[in-house]
Lab assay of single mutants.
Amino acid sequence: LVRYRTISKIPQITLNFVDLKGDPFLASPTSDREIIAPKIKERTHNVTEKVTQVLSLGADVLPEYKLQAPRIHRWTILHYSPFKAVWDWLILLLVIYTAVFTPYSAAFLLKETEEGPPATECGYACQPLAVVDLIVDIMFIVDILINFRTTYVNANEEVVSHPGRIAVHYFKGWFLIDMVAAIPFDLLIFGSGSEELIGLLKTARLLRLVRVARKLDRYSEYGAAVLFLLMCTFALIAHWLACIWYAIGNMEQPHMDSRIGWLHNLGDQIGKPYNSSGLGGPSIKDKYVTALYFTFSSLTSVGFGNVSPNTNSEKIFSICVMLIGSLMYASIFGNVSAIIQRLYSGTARYHTQMLRVREFIRFHQIPNPLRQRLEEYFQHAWSYTNGIDMNAVLKGFPECLQADICLHLNRSLLQHCKPFRGATKGCLRALAMKFKTTHAPPGDTLVHAGDLLTALYFISRGSIEILRGDVVVAILGKNDIFGEPLNLYARPGKSNGDVRALTYCDLHKIHR
Rank of each mutant, 00 (worst) to 15 (best):
G173I: 01
D257I: 11
L176F: 14
Q365F: 01
E121W: 07
Q365V: 03
W245V: 01
P184Q: 03
I91P: 01
L206S: 05
M390Q: 09
I198E: 04
Y104Q: 01
F294S: 01
P441W: 09
P118V: 07
R371S: 10
E195I: 15
P163H: 03
I260R: 05
R208Y: 04
K272Q: 01
A381Q: 11
L188N: 10
Y377I: 01
S331H: 01
H351L: 03
A213S: 04
N391L: 12
Y274N: 01
G346R: 07
A225W: 15
R214I: 03
A381Y: 15
L229R: 01
T424K: 09
P367A: 08
A247P: 01
N156K: 14
G199L: 04
Q372S: 13
Q353N: 03
G303Y: 01
W87Y: 02
H439M: 07
D404E: 03
N312V: 03
G193C: 05
S301H: 15
F333L: 12
S297Q: 01
Y274A: 01
L292Y: 01
V95S: 01
E195F: 15
F101T: 03
Q365D: 10
N275Y: 01
H264N: 14
L90W: 05
Y124C: 01
G346K: 15
D257A: 11
F234T: 01
D178Y: 01
V95Y: 01
T300D: 01
S313W: 04
N154S: 14
T438W: 07
S161A: 09
I244T: 01
P419L: 06
T150A: 03
K425P: 12
A204L: 11
F363P: 01
E195Q: 15
I189V: 13
K418M: 08
F435Y: 02
V86R: 01
Q253V: 13
I144Y: 01
S258Q: 13
A182Q: 07
W87M: 01
P70R: 05
N391M: 09
E121Q: 11
A99D: 01
G396D: 15
F101E: 09
D133S: 12
H162K: 10
G261Y: 01
L230E: 04
K202F: 01
C122K: 01
Y246C: 01
S258P: 05
L446H: 01
P184K: 01
A423C: 10
I177T: 04
S283W: 01
G191I: 04
E375R: 05
L446C: 01
G280Q: 01
G193S: 10
L241E: 01
P254L: 05
S258M: 11
Q402N: 01
P118F: 04
H364F: 04
G116I: 08
P254I: 10
I77F: 07
A238F: 03
